[in-house]
Design a protein around this nucleic acid. Structure first.
Length: 478
RNA sequence: CGGGGUGUAGCGCAGUUGGCAGCGCACCGCGUUUGGGACGCGGGGGUCCGCGGUUCAAGUCCGCGCACCCCGACCA
C-alpha cells in the first residue's frame, strides 16, 4: 500500500485528497459510477462521528426512527420548490418483481416528503407536539460529478425532522440543531466552523430559511459541513400536517429538517491533513494510539512484547492498535500510520524496556520535534494529556489558518482578487442579481451571512453599491 | 449533457513494422533483517474492456459499442 510518496497538497490538492482517501484505506471506488465503498477504517471514523452526534441529538430530546427508502414519485410533486430542486437528480424505480409499477418509486434523496406524509397521519393535537425524530440513513442523488465522501451518488447521513406548534418553536429548533452541529464540529472534529444564514439561491429546496456551518479546507475552498432548515409551513401545507390547538382550531404545523453527512469525513481530511497524509482528531480517530514494538531477535522480542502488553493494559480506556506485524519494519509502520492519521504513536524497543520508558510521537508535529519520552508508569494520564494537547493544537491551527485566509473587502475588484485564494467578507445587498454576477465572474458563491457580525456598521454592496448592514462570506466551494 | 483522456496481472505502466504478453510494486515460500519506507533466492497470477471485420497470424490495423477518469454547467 504505502510504498510511494504522496502527491503534495501544494502540487495538486485534489489529487492529494484522492490518494489519501484510497491509501489511508478509508474508502474505495465501487463498480457503479459515483458510488463508494466505505471500508472498515473509514466506517469506524464515521461511527465515532455518529455516536457523538447521536448523543447530542438524544440530549436535546430527539429519538431515532427509520423510514423507508422507496417513496411514491407523486410525493415529490406536492411541494413546488422541492420538485424543482430535486427532480433532476432523482433515481427512479419503475419495475418491481418483473412487473412495471403502477406508480414509479423514487429512491429517497431526502425524506421530508415521506416523513411529512407520516406526520400528517400521526399528529392530531397540540398535545402530540413537538415531534422530534431523527433517522440515520442512506440517500441517493444522481450527481453529475462525484468525489469520494464529498459528493457521491449514494451517501450516508442523519436527517432530523421535527414538527412544532408555533413558528417561534420551529425557529428555535432550527438554531438549536445548528448549534449542536457547530459544537460537534469544533469540539469533536476540531473543525472550526462558521454559523450563518444561506442566501435565497443557496437555500434548501422548499425551506423558508437554511442555516449552515461553513468550514475552510486546506486549499482555502469552503465546504458546507452541515445544514439546518426552517421549513415554515411549506411542507405542512403540502402534506397536510395539521393539529387542533387549545382553542379547538385546526392549525398547520411548523417543521424543520437538518442533516450532516459522510461529507463531513471529507471536511476532516481536508482540514487537518498534511503532506504525510491524514491527521485525525483524537476524539474521533478509530485508533487514538498505535503501538509499534521494536526488536532484533527472539530474546528482545519477548521482553518488548511483555512491555507492550503491559502498556496496552494501562491504556485500556483508549482506542489502541498494537501493530505486531513481523513482515514489515518499524520505519514502514511509522509511515503507514502517519498516512492513516493516528494521532499518537508509541514506540517500544529494548532501550525502553531497559529504561521503563516509551517513545511518543505526535502526528501533528512531524519528525523529531513531535517526539518525547514518557515513563511507563502512570502512562494513561500522560497519553490523555498528549491527546488533549493534539486535539487543541489541531483546532488552533485550523482556526488560525482560516482567519488568516478571510479578508474584509470593500470593492468588487478586491473581492475578485481575494476569492482566488481565500474567503472574502463583503457587504452585499442580498439581491440575486449581484450574487449571480459574482458567481458568473469569479466562480465564488455566497457561503453564508454569519451570525457573528457587527450590524451597527453599514457599507455599500460590493457589486451594486446599495447601502446595507449585512456582510456575507464569498468563496469557491466544494 | 458539452470538451479532453484512458482501458494490457490486485495497483502503476511498457509493448517497436502485425510474429512466443512483459516490467515495477503488491502477493506466496525460504533465509537473512528490524529505533524512520530492508534485502537475496525461488514462485503463483492474463477473457490484453466487449462485439464484429481484415490477415497465415491482431494487445497492435479497421468499424461499432461500453466503462471509467479529468475539465465545465448542477449539487450536501
Amino acid at each position: 500500500m504505502a510504498d510511494e510518496k504522496l502527491t503534495s497538497q501544494k502540487e495538486n490538492f485534489s489529487e492529494w485528497y484522492n490518494q489519501v482517501v484510497l491509501r489511508a484505506d478509508l474508502a474505495d471506488y465501487s463498480p457503479v459510477r459515483g458510488c463508494m465503498v466505505v471500508k472498515p477504517y473509514g466506517w469506524a471514523l464515521w461511527e465515532n462521528m455518529q455516536s457523538q452526534l447521536d448523543r447530542r441529538f438524544k440530549e436535546t430530546g430527539h429519538v431515532n426512527a427509520a423510514f423507508p427508502m422507496l417513496i411514491p414519485k407523486s410525493f415529490f410533486e406536492k411541494e413546488k420548490e422541492h420538485v424543482e430542486g430535486f427532480s433532476p437528480e432523482l433515481a427512479v424505480v419503475t419495475v418491481g418483481g418483473g412487473q412495471e409499477l403502477d406508480e414509479p418509486l423514487v429512491i429517497r434523496p431526502t425524506s421530508e416528503t415521506i416523513i411529512g406524509h407520516m406526520y400528517a397521519k400521526w399528529i392530531k393535537s397540540y398535545r402530540d407536539l413537538p415531534v422530534l425524530i431523527n433517522q440515520w440513513a442512506n440517500v441517493v442523488r444522481w450527481e453529475m460529478r462525484t468525489r469520494l465522501f464529498l459528493r457521491t451518488l449514494e451517501f450516508f447521513w442523519q436527517e432530523g425532522h421535527t414538527a412544532h406548534a408555533t413558528a417561534e418553536e420551529a425557529q428555535e429548533e432550527t438554531l438549536r440543531m445548528l448549534d449542536v452541529y457547530a459544537d460537534f464540529a469544533i469540539n469533536e472534529a476540531a473543525v472550526p466552523v462558521i454559523k450563518g444564514v444561506k442566501s435565497e439561491s443557496e437555500k434548501f429546496a422548499g425551506a423558508v430559511n437554511t442555516y449552515s456551518i461553513e468550514a475552510m479546507m486546506g486549499d482555502t475552498k469552503a465546504l458546507q459541513a452541515g445544514t439546518s432548515h426552517n421549513l415554515g409551513q411549506n411542507f405542512a401545507k403540502a402534506f397536510d400536517i395539521k393539529y387542533l390547538d387549545q382553542n379547538n382550531t385546526l392549525q398547520y404545523c411548523w417543521t424543520t429538517s437538518w442533516g450532516v453527512s459522510t461529507r463531513f469525513v471529507g471536511a476532516i481530511i481536508m482540514t487537518h491533513g498534511d503532506d504525510n497524509g491524514l491527521i485525525l482528531p483524537p476524539r474521533l480517530a478509530p485508533y487514538q494510539v498505535v503501538i509499534v514494538p521494536i526488536y532484533k531477535n527472539e530474546e528482545e522480542r519477548s521482553k518488548v512484547m511483555e512491555a507492550v502488553e503491559s502498556v496496552r493494559k494501562q491504556l485500556s480506556g483508549f482506542r489502541v492498535k498494537v501493530d505486531d506485524r513481523t513482515e514489515v519494519t518499524p520505519g514502514f509502520k511509522y509511515h503507514e500510520w502517519e498516512l492513516r492519521g493516528v494521532p499518537l504513536r508509541l514506540e517500544i524497543g529494548p532501550k525502553d524496556v531497559e529504561k521503563n520508558s516509551v517513545m511518543a510521537a505526535r502526528r501533528d508535529i512531524p519528525g523529531r520535534a513531535g517526539k518525547s519520552i514518557l515513563s511507563q508508569d502512570q502512562l494513561a494520564g500522560q497519553v490523555q494529556d498528549l491527546l488533549d494537547t493534539i486535539q487543541a493544537a489541531l483546532l488552533k491551527r485550523a482556526t488560525d489558518f482560516r482567519d488568516a485566509n478571510i479578508h474584509d473587502v470593500s470593492s468588487y475588484d478586491e473581492l475578485k482578487q481575494v476569492v482566488e485564494s481565500g474567503w472574502a467578507n463583503a457587504f452585499w445587498c442580498g439581491c440575486a442579481d449581484c450574487e449571480a454576477k459574482i458567481k458568473e465572474e469569479t466562480k465564488a458563491t455566497s457561503r453564508c451571512q454569519p451570525f457573528d457580525q457587527d450590524r451597527s456598521q453599514k457599507g455599500a454592496c460590493v457589486v451594486c453599491g446599495k447601502e446595507t448592514d449585512r456582510r456575507t462570506y464569498f468563496s469557491k466551494a466544494y
